[in-house]
Amino acid sequence: MEETLTCKNTKLLSEVERRSGTKVSRCFQCHKCSTGCPVAPDMDYMSSQVMRLIILGQEEELLKSKAIWLCASCEACTTRCPMDIDITGVMDVLRMMAIERKVAEPDARSKEFNKAFLTSVRWHGRVFEAGMMAIYKLRSKDFFTDMDKVPKMLSKRKLALWPHFSRVAGEIRKVFKRAEEEEKKR
């Protein structure tokens, strides 16, 4: 008996297409994105598979995946896609959805890095790397990686010990608050 796979659940596809402003449904699985992806060997789903899972409505599978946290945003996929799909933009949306729905992969350390980076910018208006690293270490509980680099970086003056505050740090805090409110309205 012949069986046709039909996609009944298009909720995920429409949300991703609306929020990323790109037509995921155009994907015809040429795999050009996955072939050029530098982190494909480390991913549980390669970018072309991510596109397919969106079309098939596999929300849980995707939002809990490691792949969305391994994308380095290098834009090779977006640049090369013959169907003009902004794959990097789709990855951004999936990460935001995973955080909003509180289902993100618990070991995703890049999520903690993003959070630590933005906390630093919110406080100082600029990134204060030593402070950001302290926040990252606490959040990720990854205490030992790279600690051997600290003396080397200090001796080369590559790690500032005191934050440079932007003159507009107060304004930046307001920008964060307003951007968060605007984002909810989308």
């Binding site: 990855m91 951004d92 959070k115 933005l118 910018v121 208006g125 990134v127 507009v168 951007a179």
Partner: peptide, 25 residues
């Protein structure tokens, strides 16, 4: 004068409004 962070990758993967607003400052 008073330049501030562009938001880099962490902003565009976290909040699209912030990712445009930080450079716009």
């Amino acid at each position: 004068p008073g330049w501030s962070c562009c938001g880099s990758t962490p902003a565009h993967v976290s909040n699209a409004s912030l990712a445009t607003a930080l450079p716009a400052m």
